[in-house]
Amino acid sequence: MSLQVHLLFLFCVALATVAQCLTGFAFGLILIGLVAILQLLPLGEVAVVISFLTLGNALTMVAGPKPQLEGCILRPLLASSLLGVCLGIWGLGGLDGKQITWLRLLLGVLILLASLLLVVQGTPRKRLAGTPSFWLAGGLCVLLNGLFSSGGPPIVYHLYRQPLGHELIRNTLITVFACNAVMRLGLVVGQGQLSLSTLGLSAEALPLVMLLSWLIRRYPPRLSLRTVRWLVFVLLVLAGLSLIGEALPALLALYQG
Rank of each mutant, 00 (worst) to 15 (best):
L164P: 03
C141I: 11
L206G: 06
L173H: 04
F233W: 12
G122N: 12
P132A: 04
G130C: 08
V176W: 03
L164T: 00
L199I: 04
G152I: 03
L147E: 02
F134A: 07
I216H: 05
L194H: 05
L147I: 07
L236Y: 05
K126F: 09
R218L: 09
L196G: 14
V176K: 01
T175N: 07
N180L: 14
L147N: 11
P154G: 11
G186N: 11
A129W: 05
V119C: 07
L113W: 11
P221L: 14
A137F: 10
L144T: 04
L223W: 15
L199V: 00
V109N: 00
T198G: 07
V176P: 10
P221C: 13
L110S: 09
S150Y: 07
V182F: 04
A181I: 08
N180C: 14
I174G: 12
L112P: 05
F177Q: 08
N145W: 03
G151H: 10
M183A: 14
R127T: 15
F148I: 01
L128K: 01
L225S: 13
E204D: 11
F134V: 08
W214Q: 09
L144N: 09
Y160P: 02
R229C: 08
W135N: 10
P154K: 12
N171G: 10
P221Q: 13
P154T: 13
K126D: 14
L112E: 01
L140W: 14
L235R: 09
S224L: 10
I111H: 07
I174R: 03
Y219I: 12
L140K: 10
S202P: 05
G146Y: 11
V109A: 13
R161S: 13
I174F: 01
G190E: 00
A205Q: 07
I174L: 13
L113H: 06
L212T: 01
L164N: 02
S213G: 15
A114R: 05
L143E: 00
W214T: 10
G200Q: 14
V232C: 12
Q162C: 06
C179W: 08
V120Q: 11
R222M: 11
R229D: 12
G200S: 12
L194A: 04
R226I: 08
L185H: 05
L140I: 12
P163S: 06
P153K: 13
L112Y: 03
I155W: 02
R125H: 10
A137L: 11
S213K: 05
G151D: 02
S150G: 11
R229G: 09
L110V: 12
C141K: 06
P220E: 15
V120T: 13
G200R: 07
V182R: 07
